[in-house]
């Protein structure tokens, strides 16, 4: 722990603290874990990008059904592959305990928006449900159930009846499901 603290530097650390919802301990722990990941790859450049596959070896993310989406949403690179340490901090910050509902729901929306088009349409919802129930054929819902479910979802949340769920509608729904805040959480 001490070694990582000296690596990070006080200024950088306080900046990290100021710009994320994480505490000092969490940042240090994140840094430690991140450098461990890094060590398998090149360690040369200043702000190295750890490829998504390596990130996904983290036990906290390994079995998450949304792991690929999470990495994609938080990646700032052009190709959407790999996270820098700062991206990683962003990720942990959004999933931390102290992040606000607005931030959490914003990122949840983006994670659920599989085609990145800014609304949750039928396909996104289908993918979401499949992600949650399992991808294989025998675990999937039948097409009938799926259409029924999606109709229910839209009935519930699509306030302006345009057939998709946009961010504000999503946030409205989220604000009414109290379990979300406690479950949208990843702790290192």
């Amino acid at each position: 722990m001490g070694a990582t603290a000296s690596q990070l530097g006080k200024d950088v650390l306080s900046e990290y603290q100021e710009l994320t919802f994480l505490t000092k301990q969490e940042i240090l722990l994140a840094h430690k874990r991140f450098t461990e990941l890094q060590s398998r790859d090149s360690r040369g450049n200043l702000n190295p990008r750890v490829p998504t596959e390596t990130i996904l070896t983290l036990p906290e993310l390994k079995s998450n059904p949304f792991r690929d989406r999470i990495c994609r949403v938080f990646s700032t690179s052009e190709s959407k592959d790999g996270l820098t340490f700062e991206d990683f901090l962003d990720l942990l910050s959004a999933f931390s305990d102290s992040a606000t509902l607005e931030i959490k729901s914003h990122y949840a929306f983006r994670i659920f928006d599989f085609d990145d088009d800014g609304t949750l349409d039928e396909n996104d919802l289908k993918k979401l449900v499949n992600c949650l129930t399992g991808e294989t054929d025998d675990t999937r819902l039948t097409p009938d159930e799926m259409t029924q479910l999606i109709r229910n979802i839209l009935e519930e949340s699509d306030i302006d009846k345009d057939g998709t769920v946009n961010l504000s509608e999503f946030q409205h729904v989220i604000s009414r499901s109290p379990d979300f805040v406690s479950s949208f959480k990843i702790v290192l």
Partner: peptide, 23 residues
């Protein structure tokens, strides 16, 4: 603030626990 309608499908979808790590 929560929805008076019980058993909403969204509520199920949103309640996915991101903290669960065990395969």
């Amino acid at each position: 603030l929560s929805d008076p309608v019980a058993g909403g499908s969204w509520q199920l979808l949103c309640s996915w626990d991101f903290s669960v790590t065990n395969e």
